[in-house]
Design a protein around this nucleic acid. Structure first.
Lengths: 232, 232
DNA sequence: CGTTCAATTGATCAGCGTCAAACTAGGTGG
DNA sequence: CCACCTAGTTTGACGCTGATCAATTGAACG
């Protein structure tokens, strides 16, 4: 594996503080792969043989049941996914597919578990990461159960804005259909919700988003760190 | 703290394999409390000063936003809750209240974190537990997003039956209003869903549940371990 | 320049929430 | 012992949110 990727990965919180030789042990069995868009990397139900790290591009985590499908989240560089299944040596609960041309690193789960057992710093980092993931899903669940689709969209936009350091103009980073699915609605409904936000100073044309009346939108969305702040 | 509780707690997976003195260190600062029903033990947003263990009774984890409230889950003896917040030294994302007369043990978060840092077996157990919790929330999220309310109820009943070792007759362990909230619907809608399951051999009167046509119910519910098996 | 797929729009409909009222069960006090 | 109170549950009527279906527009790409 090229050293440039290694250093990228090394700088991730989860790998930052571990011993060098343990880090190398995990990297040794890993390999980089380049995928075109729309490639299914993981299918739910399979055993978690690899932990994944997205280096570039983006990966959708989705779930299916009875012919239906829903987007659970989108993973962007540089971050890991499928950590819980790896640690528990369990089956994937979600499938994963590339949304665009993506570079992904695969690290054998058994190596990760082995190092986890002997490197306390790594174990600590894994726990922190897992706790973070857990809290993210809980927040998502609250969002789904406590808010209407319009409120979810409004808050999504405010979160996006925050990610973009408060810029008034932004770009959507995913397809609207995926966004709709992530927010638990249909594309048609999202389209209408977008128009419904017009009175609140929201303009969306194509992928470009503009928020002109921040205050009004906030008043509608009523964001709370307990749902909308990923770092809280 | 009475030794009888200690041994109960000690037998929990999360405390099972840790060193005796570390276990004692966590227990030392802990104390048992008895609560009547409907007492709010935890309010979301507060800092997670204690990890909790339910010894008897039952505790509801719920979340609120903008005057609305939803039941996230119900915790039964003997198990811990609010582990993630404790580990991350973060704010509670959910509130907790007793549903019945309950006995709860409070363990100072700082002690838990301190032991976590020096006892690798404990750290390992915490990770396993956290991963389990994470997967539970993901399953719950899939349930919510991929199924209709009728399908969610049908699968809930099948899971309940499984918990009761497949008995044909069972008792609901929570109020219907709470169940409705947990399943993401209103009490009225739950009431109607129950009637809608009659053709599938489901009879619910008061808290007693009877499933006479298991096969028909399964055919409707289409349960999958990827959502419905807590151990998967 | 045509092909393809996402996004939009309109029309319709089902699921589910809301509101109000009736019913039930469990507990209390006369 | 019974009347009454309270809170949960059920039922009915109604309306809104959001899904579905179908058709059109729009944009990206070879």
């Amino acid at each position: 594996m090229p050293d440039s990727y290694k250093s990228d990965i090394r700088s991730l919180p989860i790998f930052q503080h571990m011993a060098d030789d343990n880090f190398d042990a995990i990297m040794r069995g890993g390999y980089v792969q380049n995928f075109p868009p729309q490639v299914e990397l993981i299918t739910e139900g399979e055993t978690a043989d690899f932990m994944h790290v997205v280096i570039s591009g983006s990966v959708e985590l989705f779930a299916t049941w009875n012919g239906r499908e829903t987007t659970m989240s989108v993973v962007r560089p540089i971050s890991t996914f499928i950590l819980a299944a790896t640690i528990k040596d369990a089956h994937y609960l979600m499938s994963a597919r590339t949304l665009e041309k993506s570079r992904v690193i695969l690290l054998p789960s058994s190596d990760v578990r082995a190092v986890f057992d002997r490197d306390h710093d790594f174990a600590r980092a894994v726990v922190t990461e897992l706790a973070q993931c857990y809290r993210a899903v809980v927040k998502n669940s609250k969002d789904l159960k406590l808010r209407t689709s319009l409120e979810r969209l409004a808050n999504y936009l405010l979160r996006l804005q925050r990610r973009m350091n408060g810029a008034e103009k932004m770009e959507l980073t995913i397809e609207k259909r995926k966004l709709a699915s992530q927010l638990g609605m249909t594309p048609e409904n999202l389209s209408r919700a977008i128009k419904a936000l017009r009175p609140y100073g929201v303009t969306i044309e194509g992928t470009s988003v503009q928020i002109t009346k921040q205050d009004d939108l906030v008043q509608l969305a009523k964001p709370t760190p307990l749902i909308d702040d990923p770092t809280f």
